[in-house]
Design a protein around this nucleic acid. Structure first.
Lengths: 126, 126
DNA sequence: TAGAATGGCCTACATTTGAACGCCACAGGA
DNA sequence: TCCTGTGGCGTTCAAATGTAGGCCATTCTA
């Protein structure tokens, strides 16, 4: 149960599936992979094993297969990854990140509304 | 001049300095590193060499030293990195990213104002 | 019930990253 | 002029990642 260093992308793809499914066997994860992204069963197995070794997943035996389930909350993992990115990319400052997301990736009207709503909410809580 | 897969974090730290300085020699980059982050001169040299090989920087000889300068615009690199993250973390959807940034990292009042301003600006352009 | 699948566990292996070394050339001060 | 420091270029080397293969036991299924 050694703690960690932010997950590499391949493992992230896999752990996200476990989060979505709640819990899953190797095969279930394999099958839940998006069509454009094929990974050998063994490869998925390896990633899940690594994720468990790193402490992100826990597993229990169920019949012949293992069922993996999250051990740390997604929000924590997301935070780790984002912290890294924000740091590396903008020296820790989030505003330029928003700036970039808004200007470069663009937002549609619905998204703008959602964002405003989040800000309102946030201010109301002050 | 091969294009390439998003930059690893160490190289990002280095290329950001070149962006900031406009152009720089190995030594200048070395010295511009934040105090908490020391890298051997040779290490910096290696990263700069790799960045050039990957096509992110260009260099010209100036006396005995090489001067490195950006070859792709920062915004493009940032985009590459962010696309990866948004994909890996949220399946390509940016709203959850904002959600996370706002709720988990928090924003101070000034930041909220800046964000609102950006949104206003964006809408005005519609 | 015998062979084909399936899954677990270990192992492998190339590539990429992180971080430097060593050797050699040149340039400037003692 | 000789030594020292600075840079370039090639190399190295371990750990992390990406992606499986091998072998073995257990299960289905024909």
């Amino acid at each position: 149960m050694p703690k960690k260093s932010a997950l590499p992308k391949s493992e992230l793809e896999v752990v996200r599936i476990v989060w979505d499914l709640g819990e899953a066997t190797v095969r279930q994860v394999s099958e839940a992979l998006p069509a454009e992204r094929t990974l050998d069963f063994k490869t998925v197995q390896t990633y899940l094993r690594r994720l468990e070794a790193k402490g992100y997943l826990r597993s229990r035996q169920q019949g012949r297969a293992k069922v993996y389930v999250a051990r740390v909350r997604p929000v924590q993992v997301v935070r780790e990854v984002l912290d890294q990115v924000v740091d590396r990319l903008f020296g820790g400052d989030t505003v330029p990140l928003f700036q970039h997301l808004i200007h470069d990736r663009g937002l549609n009207d619905a998204e703008i509304q959602q964002l405003r709503a989040m800000l309102d909410e946030l201010e109301r809580q002050r």
